[in-house]
Simulated scan of single mutants.
Amino acid sequence: MSTLPIAAVVFDMDGVLTDTETIWDEVRRGLAEQDGVAWPEGATQAMMGMSTPEWSAYLTTTVGVRGDPGERTLEAMAARYRKHLPILPGAVEAVQRLAARWPLALASSSARRLIDTSLETLGITDLFQVSVSTEEVARGKPAPDGFLRACELLGVEPARAVALEDSSNGLRSASAAGMRVIAVPHKAFPPADDALALADVVVGSLDEVTVDLVAGLGSSDVSRPPR
């Protein structure tokens, strides 16, 4: 079996490090309620991973939110973050142990202001050599743009990088970029079966994401565990 050693790790943020997927949903549903429009079935999952312009347009055209839904959402999210930023168990520790072995990047669908606030709050800004916001690439997830840009900035081939993702669109994005993929499914918003099947490894929590696990993905022939 030929080997391709892992050279970098790229984290998603919302739903992997910070437990904010529920907050995004609450804020967006709140805007719809304020404007007196019904929340369409599947809207929550559809917007996961979209870039800011993409989900803002979706809120306008599909949901029917008025005004500038992008700015309204980001203002509300920033206010919620200032009150309390929920962190997923083992998030800081996972970043610390992987940063001791590999260069790290962040490829997030969040706006730059929310990324910077989150990393500063977690105290892990300096552990990431690179961070890429949805605002800084042409297309959001499931397109691979964010992950590809993160790898480019790190100077690492995508095939030698591992992505940690939770959502359907995030898993599709990392797979489309040609990366090794670790799925950390969010219990409230589990990914679709076809997206989960794209992962090389599925874990129950970040505590399972060890240096040995990541290093073990450094081959061209990784057997995926049964699910």
Rank of each mutant, 00 (worst) to 15 (best):
E208F: 06
H186E: 13
R172H: 10
L127M: 12
S2D: 08
E157K: 06
A161I: 09
T125P: 04
S220W: 13
D145I: 04
A76S: 09
G170P: 04
V202W: 07
W24F: 10
L59A: 08
V201L: 04
T18V: 15
R139Y: 07
E33T: 13
R113P: 00
V130K: 02
S56I: 09
V27C: 01
E75S: 12
A7T: 10
M50Y: 12
E135D: 15
I115M: 11
L164D: 00
S56T: 15
V132G: 11
S108K: 09
P142R: 10
T44L: 00
H186A: 11
D194R: 05
P69A: 02
T121S: 14
G64L: 06
A105H: 08
G218C: 13
L114T: 13
I87E: 13
V130Q: 07
L4P: 00
P191V: 02
V184M: 13
D212H: 09
L217M: 08
V162T: 08
A100G: 14
L31G: 09
D212T: 14
A150S: 14
A192H: 12
L217E: 08
D166R: 05
V10N: 06
A215S: 15
R28A: 03
A94N: 03
T22N: 08
M13F: 03
F11C: 07
H186T: 01
T22E: 11
E93F: 03
S223R: 13
L213S: 11
K83A: 14
S51T: 10
V95K: 02
R112L: 14
Y58A: 01
D200W: 10
D19P: 08
D207M: 06
T210D: 10
G36Q: 08
R172S: 07
L198D: 11
P144N: 09
V156Q: 02
W39E: 05
Q34D: 14
R112M: 10
L114M: 11
L59Y: 01
W102Q: 02
V202F: 10
M50C: 07
